[in-house]
C-alpha cells in the first residue's frame, strides 16, 4: 500500500506582525517563525501507524511551497516518511488551497497512491480546503476531520470516524483510493527517533519544479490587502505586580457583582 501525506510549513508569529509595504503580505522578519503544521503531525503519525500494521506500506510526504520549506519535509522524514517530495513554487506569499490542492492532484495523477492523508486544516491560513480540493481533482472520495482510521488493504477500504460539530460522530466507509483529513487528537504523535533524524538530514528530497508561472494552475484569487485588524479590544490591561493585578481583578469582578 502506498500512502501520501500532505504536510505544510506554517507561519508561527513570535512577535508583533508587520505588513509589507505593498500591503499584499506580511514582512518576513524576526516576528515570524516557521514549522510543520500541528494537524499534519497527526496525519504523519496515522500513516506511520498504518505502516506498522501493514509492513509492505510506503509512506511519502509531499509539500507545496518555495525553497525554504525544506526543513518541514525533513521533519516529515524524521517522523517516519520514507520519501519526501517538494513541489516547488516561486510563491513566498499566500498560496490558496485552490492552487496547492490542484498541484497535489497533478502529482497524484502521475504517482498514484492508495491513501492520501492531510491535516484537517493549517494553523496559519486555516482554509480547511487543501485536502478536499486535492480529492475533488483526483476524483477520489474524501472524508474530513477523522478521529479514527482503520484500513483494510485487501478489501481496499478505510473505515473512518469523522467528527461533525457538537460532539457528533459519523462513521464512514471509503473505497480506496481515498483522501482523509485528520483531526488533531486522533493519536499521540511520537518524537522522531534518532535514526530517523539522522536519515532525514541527508536523504535526497525529490523536487518537482513549478516555480515557472506557466507550470502553475490559473489564478483563482488575488489578494487586495492584508492588514492587522484594528484592536476592537474594549478590555482593560491590568498593570503592576502579580499580587496587585490579582487584587485589582478580584475587586473589579466584585464591583460588577460577578464575584
Amino acid at each position: 500500500m502506498k500512502i501520501l501525506v500532505c504536510v505544510k510549513q506554517i507561519i508561527e508569529p513570535v512577535g508583533p506582525i508587520t505588513i509589507r509595504e505593498d500591503g499584499k503580505w506580511l514582512n518576513q522578519d524576526d516576528a515570524l517563525d516557521y514549522r510543520i503544521n500541528y494537524y499534519d503531525t497527526y496525519a504523519m503519525e496515522a500513516a506511520v501507524r498504518i505502516k506498522e500494521t501493514f509492513s509492505d506500506t510506503l509512506v511519502d510526504a509531499v509539500s507545496v511551497g518555495p525553497a525554504d520549506i525544506e526543513p518541514t519535509l525533513r521533519h516529515a522524514l524524521a517522523l517516519g516518511a520514507d520519501n519526501a517530495i517538494h513541489i516547488k513554487t516561486r510563491e513566498k506569499d499566500y498560496l490558496p488551497a485552490d492552487i496547492t490542492g490542484r498541484l497535489i492532484a497533478d502529482y497524484v495523477s502521475v504517482n498514484p497512491c492508495d491513501l492520501i492523508l492531510a491535516g484537517v486544516m493549517s494553523e496559519d491560513t486555516m482554509q480547511s480546503l487543501t485536502g478536499p480540493v486535492a480529492a475533488a481533482h483526483c476524483g477520489i472520495p474524501c472524508a474530513t476531520a477523522a478521529t479514527a482510521i482503520t484500513v483494510d488493504p485487501v478489501k481496499k477500504t478505510a473505515d473512518v470516524v469523522c467528527e461533525l460539530e457538537g460532539g457528533i460522530n459519523e462513521q464512514i466507509r471509503l473505497g480506496l483510493p481515498a483522501l482523509i483529513t485528520v483531526q488533531s487528537g486522533i493519536n499521540q504523535p511520537r518524537y522522531a527517533s534518532l535514526s530517523n533524524r539522522l536519515r532525514a538530514k541527508s536523504q535526497l528530497i525529490e523536487v518537482i519544479d513549478k516555480s515557472d508561472d506557466a507550470a502553475m494552475p490559473g489564478q483563482y484569487q488575488k489578494i487586495r490587502r492584508v492588514f492587522v485588524p484594528e484592536k476592537t479590544a474594549h478590555g482593560e490591561f491590568l498593570e503592576g505586580s502579580s499580587t496587585e493585578k490579582a487584587r485589582v481583578l478580584v475587586s473589579r469582578l466584585h464591583e460588577r457583582s460577578i464575584l
Binding site: I11, P13, I17, I19, L26, Y94, P96, E123, D124, T125, M126, G218, Q219, Y220, Q221, K222, I223, R224, R225, V226, F227, V228, P229
Partner: peptide, 15 residues
C-alpha cells in the same frame, strides 16, 4: 482572517 485573527486579508475571486 489568518493566524488566529492576528491578520486579516481581503481577496478578490478571479472567476
Amino acid at each position: 482572517s489568518l493566524l488566529n485573527g492576528k491578520v486579516s486579508m481581503k481577496t478578490r475571486p478571479q472567476t
